[in-house]
Amino acid sequence: MGKKKTSKAEATRPAVDTYTLHLIAGATGDLLHRLASVAATQFTGIKIKLIDHPMVDDLDKLQETLDDLEGDRPIVVHALPHSSAKTLVRNECVTRRIPHYDITGPLLDFLGDCVGSLPDNDLSRLHQVDAAYQNRIEAMEFALAHDDGLGLPTLREADIVIVGVSRVSKSPTTLYLSSRGFKVANVSISPQTGFPPELSKIKKRTIVAFTTQPKRLQEIRAERLEYNGVASSDYDNLQKVIREVMETEAEYRRRGYPIIDVTNRTIEQVAAEILEKLKLSPR
């Protein structure tokens, strides 16, 4: 077989620069990862691979982590509270000519200048962060066990219950809120199943109802069926969808559920409105 010819577009396409960003944290490193993830998206034509090194809470672990750094063009960003750990990273990286940045140092210095005091650099206080992280893990496990009508017998344990017809972003919103520490369940409402009786047994102030513009919902459902290779049906019939949305909204109002229209809105926007309507403080 002959060699595949390289197209002109492929020949002129610039090579992608690749970097490996090592994130070293004394605790879970969850916040550090989030910040780095946002920053890494802002460079066109650059691929930045993130490698997490959590729970590096003593100098021996830190030295082992630094010895094992790998990947293309390594970069180190760390969130280590103790001055000796900061010094070790700086010395190692300078010797090996690895770019490095202390994400907590400038903030601690700034706050110290503001309050006129030096930080304690107490690693044990990071366990408070670990507890918050564990709460988020438990909330996400709860969300998975209560997705799309699962776990109805323990619905009362939820901080938030999202109800809505099929394909109105209940599950993505549930996972987003659970990642912030809320125990969230979602229940799908359909003409066939109606409203589960368990909804009448929980506190109404935990329930929020999703709706959307019928035409947009019909488009989303049609795309879903096409993706799965399924023929069109009542599920994506526009007139049936219009009727389904109207009847469901009427029942929402009868039950006194706060209603959120999710049409063309981001998950973050919808989540913020949920917390506002249910009078919950962000976590």
Rank of each mutant, 00 (worst) to 15 (best):
M1P: 13
G2A: 13
K4M: 12
T6V: 14
S7I: 00
E10H: 11
E10P: 03
R13V: 00
Y19V: 01
L21I: 00
L21R: 02
G26R: 06
G26M: 04
H33G: 04
A39L: 11
A39Y: 14
Q42N: 12
I48D: 11
I48N: 12
K49D: 15
L50M: 05
I51R: 13
H53P: 09
D58P: 13
L59K: 11
L59I: 06
D60M: 07
K61L: 12
L62V: 04
E64T: 12
D67Q: 14
R73D: 12
R73E: 08
H78I: 00
P81Q: 04
S84R: 06
I98H: 07
L111S: 03
G112I: 00
P119W: 00
N121D: 06
D122G: 02
D122R: 05
H127R: 09
A132G: 15
F142P: 12
A145K: 13
A145L: 09
G149L: 08
G149Y: 07
G149M: 06
A158W: 07
I160P: 09
V163W: 07
G164R: 10
G164M: 05
S171M: 10
P172S: 08
T174I: 01
P191H: 05
F195G: 07
P196E: 03
P196Q: 07
K204H: 01
R205H: 12
Q213M: 02
P214N: 03
I220C: 02
R221S: 04
L225K: 07
S232E: 08
Y235G: 10
K240E: 09
V241S: 15
E244K: 11
E247Y: 00
A250L: 08
A250R: 10
A250I: 00
R254I: 01
Y257K: 12
I259C: 13
D261N: 15
I267D: 06
E268A: 15
E268C: 04
Q269F: 02
I274H: 06
I274M: 05
